[in-house]
Amino acid sequence: MSPGSITLTGQHARLTPLTQDHLTGLQAAASDGRLWELFFTSVPSPENLTAWFTIASEQRDKGLALPFTVFDQIQNTVIGTTRYCNIDSANKRLEIGYTWYAQSYQRSAINTECKLLLLAHAFEILGCNAVEFRTDWLNQRSQKAIERLGAKRDGVLRSHMVLPDGRVRDTVVYSILKHEWIGVKANLEFKLKRAASDIST
């Protein structure tokens, strides 16, 4: 199970493998809402963007991750990023994480479609047995968003990570299993259709 280098395209969003050419657009997207000031997220500040890119590239080169730049498909503008990470080929598992969008695109059809594209590729092409999501215990908005996808909470990893500011993070773990995908897919397609209908009206 190897995700390789892929581009995932939908009606609203396009997920393209991250390259250095995308950094200017990502900086602009992060500046929409000054996302790096949210202490419970991993959004890089402008001065840390190059280091963030280097780490993401190293994980990709080791086969541990596949980072994407997210484009608004209609406007062809960079609006955020996401990635497959913690790829465990032997056990057919991976995580979807490191996701953030410009503030003006949050709670829009973009996130729903991105998750639909990523999950469909993971289960239907890569043959995953499980797809995982992780978030900070303090990030209540993220937890609710993950639950709206149809993922189920596996538990909380206490004192799981030491963050750059010294805070010790508790991590909430969710997952979707292979046999649950058919129901989750129907749910996401319904949400996306309803969101598109709201936009058109």
Rank of each mutant, 00 (worst) to 15 (best):
Q140F: 06
F133C: 08
R169S: 09
K115Q: 04
V78K: 09
H22K: 10
K115P: 01
R14K: 14
S5F: 03
Y174D: 08
E132F: 09
Q27K: 14
S57K: 13
V172M: 04
F190I: 06
L38P: 00
Q75E: 15
T7Q: 05
R93I: 11
S142A: 14
A122G: 15
V156Q: 09
K152G: 06
N129R: 14
K193H: 14
Y84S: 01
D21N: 15
P67S: 04
S45F: 07
A102P: 11
Q106S: 03
E47N: 14
L23D: 12
I79V: 15
L64P: 00
K62M: 06
I146W: 06
A145V: 04
F190E: 15
K144P: 00
A29H: 06
N86F: 01
S175I: 03
L35N: 09
L116D: 01
W137M: 15
W52C: 00
W36D: 09
Q106N: 05
L38F: 12
V184A: 02
W52N: 00
R194V: 14
D32M: 08
I79G: 12
P17K: 05
V131D: 00
V162C: 14
H121Y: 15
N91Q: 09
A120M: 01
D61W: 05
P17I: 05
S175T: 02
H160V: 02
G97W: 00
D154I: 05
D72W: 08
A102I: 11
N48A: 13
R83P: 01
L26W: 08
F40C: 13
V162N: 09
D72I: 00
S31H: 03
I176E: 01
L64E: 12
P3F: 02
A65E: 00
S197P: 04
R194H: 12
V184Q: 05
E180Y: 08
A56N: 09
I87Q: 03
L18K: 05
V156K: 12
L117Y: 02
I74L: 12
G80K: 05
M161I: 14
L126Y: 03
N86R: 06
L192V: 11
Q73T: 09
Q59G: 00
Q106C: 04
S42C: 05
D136N: 15
A51K: 10
G155P: 13
L157I: 08
A122M: 07
T54V: 13
H22W: 11
R148P: 02
D32N: 13
Q103D: 11
N91M: 06
P164S: 06
S5E: 10
G63A: 08
Q75N: 13
G166N: 07
T112A: 08
T9D: 11
K92V: 07
T19L: 04
Y174A: 11
S45Q: 10
W137N: 14
D72T: 03
K92N: 12
A120H: 07
T41A: 12
K144T: 10
G25M: 09
F39D: 11
G25A: 13
E58Y: 01
I6Y: 00
T112P: 04
R194S: 10
I199R: 14
T99A: 01
V184M: 04
K62N: 08
I79E: 11
I125T: 15
L126F: 07
I96V: 15
T81L: 02
I182V: 14
A109N: 05
N91I: 03
I199L: 14
